[in-house]
Every structure is written in structure tokens, then in C-alpha cells.
Design a protein around this nucleic acid. Structure first.
Lengths: 256, 256
DNA sequence: CGTCTACTTGACCACTATCAACGCTGGTGG
DNA sequence: CCACCAGCGTTGATAGTGGTCAAGTAGACG
């Protein structure tokens, strides 16, 4: 790499360049989870770490050539598909350590677009290199497959939500999902920031913005959550679980 | 088709044990699609072909150990997940040449159940053997990944349907999807048999049975389809595409 | 011939979308 | 500095799509 390029990269990403999988706090959640030291090293060699992408910026677009997948290092993304008729469907929100873009594998073009919800840094895994590594490192291949399989499972859960659950149940499910994911990353399960807008939430859940807004205020009124703007300061997990239809204990769902 | 080929096919389908990928009429749609002769042979060695499963019989159940995936040789399956609250969501209908069960990979247990919609024969791919082959045959690995990725794409399209489309649009989408899949398999795009019940269709599309029934009769009244029971004898593809929100030409959607 | 299940049709109503108005915030330009 | 505007979020009123309940028909099978 030329000195000029190095300087550019340094400026671009401030200090993120020095990051390595081996020192990354996310390695226990991300692709490297099962890798041996030398395999990890091989993976590290192919990862490109560019400048951070700003809120609203697009990482890749539906229809773009599929030549890389991305692991989120910091920040958050949303991915969404566009129907021919123009409707936009948000297919997922993605937090640090998650892999984005794998749905493009089947067709050689990205099947969704990905846009930053806040300033976000990603590790880029060029497809050609990843393919080679998958054939050399069985553990990596398995990990990628697990990721894909997990996304299938997750999308199918979402289908269930969209087709069988009421607006309240969907929102409870959404909050609990997020809560759980934050917790796994070492953050509070009961207090966090919604990086996505109400419009995004409503789109994702198949509801109107107004409905989401109303339910938030109702949940607050009934003491299930404390929320101000994007800031959630308290989740009543048990009550939400009951509302979402997940048995918590042998209690009844009378929170509303 | 030669007489010889006919005889082979007959033997294949009656005494299913003798079947081979190399002689299977589905090889151009199924996993073997990109495989070389010797790789195909290796794959063939690990495939188990059991007795046909009858309509209503379960191939695997949500929660079962994930130790195999299945390719459908003849017939059709539905897969579905059960929510904790007991609701059932059909996550897909599967036709000959399609792979079922891959969503279990992430968690080592099946995340859905699979049940036969009619008498069905499958090729069982034991997971341990498949894993080994994936590491030995890059083309096979790619093909499995393509399958997974394709299922993600498909499920996300379904999310869009469920969250953004009206009942009519969903049913049109459903019929067109089926039509397209039959066509790829060499059957008519305009006339086929619905192997699933109305209840299944309504469950899959997130509607009430009554709604599906009503829309079928309305579509028939308006000349978009001809249907009697499970037998569809004519689809007006253009009109359905317009109804589903897929631009066909520069025509307006005034079919209803 | 009776029973069962799948499907259809009708009447009614609830959930949630839609429309409209308003407050708040942050950015932009005079 | 303030006026203006756009985007986001909230709240209220109204209406429509599709669910629910109920009853009836048709086909499959013993």
C-alpha cells in the first residue's frame, strides 16, 4: 500500500485502521467466533476497513453487483427492498457484529439496500477472497452458513409476526428483540436508544406511523415502557413478554 | 423422449431406490446443477432415498435434531413454524427439486416442521456427509449457499407482501409465484393443481380462509382465473401481474 | 346414508389505515 | 437574530379492509 493511500485511509477512518479481529471486542459475536488463531489471521488479511459511513449514507444498493459482505463494527444499519410498485420494506435493522448483504449470494446482485442509521464503521469482506477462505477454512464456511440459516429463521419469525400478530404484539416483539440483542452485546436490556425513526419502525412492522406512535404512548401510560423521543429508559420485560405472547411465568396478560 | 428414457423414468419413480442424480430429470434445478460428473457421483453416494411419505405425514418437526436436509424428488411439502403462543405460520410450500430444512443449520435443531401435501418422495442428505462434501467440493458449497441466500431473498419478499399488500395483491402474488415455479419445471404456467388447502393458503398469506375463498370467486367472476376446487384451469397472467403490482406493459390496472 | 372436513357465502364489526392538524426541532437563508 | 421551512412525532376523527361469527353446501369416505 502506498504512503499516500495509507494517509488517506488514516484520515478517513481516524484510528479505526489499527483494528484487528483478534483485538476486537465483538469477536465473540461475529464471524471469528469459532476460528483458530491462524485462521483468524487469514481472515484478517482480507478484511478492508474503510472510512465510516454517515447517517443516511448508503452502503450498497439493491441491484448492485454482489462483490462483498459487511460486518458492522460500530453503529447500525437498516436493510430494505424495493418492490417494483415502489413500496419499500425494511427487512432488518443490524447492530454491531452482524453480517449484512448475504442475501445477494443467490443472484450475484444485492437483493436489498443498506443504509446507515447513525455513523457506522464496517469491515468489508470482498466476496472473491471470502469464497477462497470458505473453501480453505471449514470453520469459517460453517460460520457463514450459520449466519445465513439464522437470517432465514429470523425472517420467518418476522413473517409470523406480520401475518398473525396485532399491532401491540408486534411492537412488543420489536422492543424485546432489540433489548435482547443489546443485552448480548453487553448493554442494558432495559435502557437503550432507538437509532431508527418511527417511520422505520412502522415500515418494518407493517404498520402506520400513527399506530406506532399511539402504541408507544399507550405502553408508556400503562407502565410497560418509559420512552422519550428515541431514548428508552425502562422496559418492563415481563409485561412486554406477556403482551408479545411469550409465556413468562404462569401469569395472565392483563397489562392492558 | 426416447422409449428407453421413459422406461428409466418409470423405474426411477416406482422403485425409488434405484434413482440416481445423473438420471434425474430435476438435476438441472436441484443441487447438482453445477456439479461435474465425479462430484455428482460423490454426492450420489451420500443420498438416502427412503419410502415415499404420505399426505399429511411429517418429514421432520420443529425442534428435532438437525441431522439432514431434504431435496424433494416428487410431490410437495409445506413448512411451518409454531409460535410459543401456539399460532402456526406456514413459511413456504416446496415443490420438486427444492431443498428443505436448511434453516435448521444455525441452531442444530430444525426451526420449522415439514409436512407432505401429497404423496412425496425425497432425497435425504445426511448433514455429516453433506458437511464433508461441502468442504471437498467448492461447487457444492456454493450451491448450498445459493440455496440459503435464495431462501432469505424469498422470505424477505414475503415480508413485503405481508406488510404492504392488500389481500387481492397477496393472492395474485401467490398464484403467480406458483405459476412461475411450475413453468420452470416444465408444466403449464396457466393450469395446475393447488396441492395445498384453502386454509394453508390463507395461513401462508396472513389472511382468513373466508377472505381467500371470497377473492377466488371474485377473481373468477372477473375472468382473472378459472378455478374449481383445487384445479386451476386458466390464469390470466397479465391481469394478475397488474393486480399484484408488477408492471406488465403500459396498461392500467382496471381488471377489478 | 350419515358424518366429517373442506369450502363458500352472508352479516357484522374491530382494528388499524388514512386524512388532517398541530407542536417541536434543527437547518437555512435573509 | 429571526423567519421560514422541512422532517419528525403526536393526537384526533373517520372510514375501510379484512376478521369473526354463523350458517349452509358440497364432496370424501366409512
Amino acid at each position: 500500500m502506498s504512503t499516500e493511500k495509507k494517509v488517506l485511509d488514516f484520515i478517513a477512518s481516524s484510528k479505526t485502521n489499527q483494528t484487528h479481529c483478534s483485538t476486537c471486542s465483538l469477536s465473540s459475536l461475529c464471524l471469528p467466533i469459532t476460528l483458530q488463531a491462524d485462521d483468524l489471521n487469514a481472515l484478517e488479511q482480507v478484511i478492508k476497513r474503510g472510512r465510516p459511513i454517515q447517517k443516511g449514507e448508503v452502503l450498497f444498493k439493491q441491484g448492485d453487483d454482489f462483490n462483498a459482505v459487511f460486518a458492522i463494527r460500530t453503529g447500525a444499519l437498516k436493510s430494505f427492498t424495493l418492490a417494483q410498485s415502489g413500496e419499500e420494506q425494511i427487512t432488518g435493522f443490524h447492530l454491531a457484529s452482524e453480517l449484512v448483504g448475504l442475501s445477494g449470494y443467490a443472484e450475484d446482485v444485492h437483493s436489498v439496500s443498506a443504509k446507515a442509521l447513525e455513523t457506522t464503521t464496517v469491515c468489508e469482506l470482498p466476496l472473491d477472497k471470502l469464497e477462497i477462505l470458505c473453501d480453505e477454512i471449514p470453520d469459517l464456511r460453517k460460520q457463514v452458513m450459520r449466519n445465513m440459516s439464522g437470517e432465514i429463521r429470523q425472517d420467518q419469525q418476522m413473517m409470523l409476526q406480520l401475518s398473525k400478530k396485532s399491532a401491540d404484539e408486534r411492537l412488543a416483539y420489536f422492543l424485546l428483540e432489540l433489548s435482547h440483542r443489546f443485552e448480548r452485546r453487553g448493554f442494558s436490556a432495559k435502557a437503550f436508544r432507538l437509532s431508527m425513526s418511527r417511520v422505520d419502525i412502522s415500515n418494518y412492522l407493517g404498520l402506520a406511523v400513527e399506530t406506532v406512535s399511539r402504541i408507544f404512548t399507550r405502553l408508556q401510560k400503562n407502565g410497560l415502557i418509559t420512552i422519550e423521543g428515541k431514548e428508552i429508559t425502562h422496559l418492563n420485560l415481563d409485561a412486554l413478554n406477556r403482551l408479545a405472547g411469550n409465556p413468562v411465568a404462569d401469569t395472565q396478560c392483563d397489562a392492558l
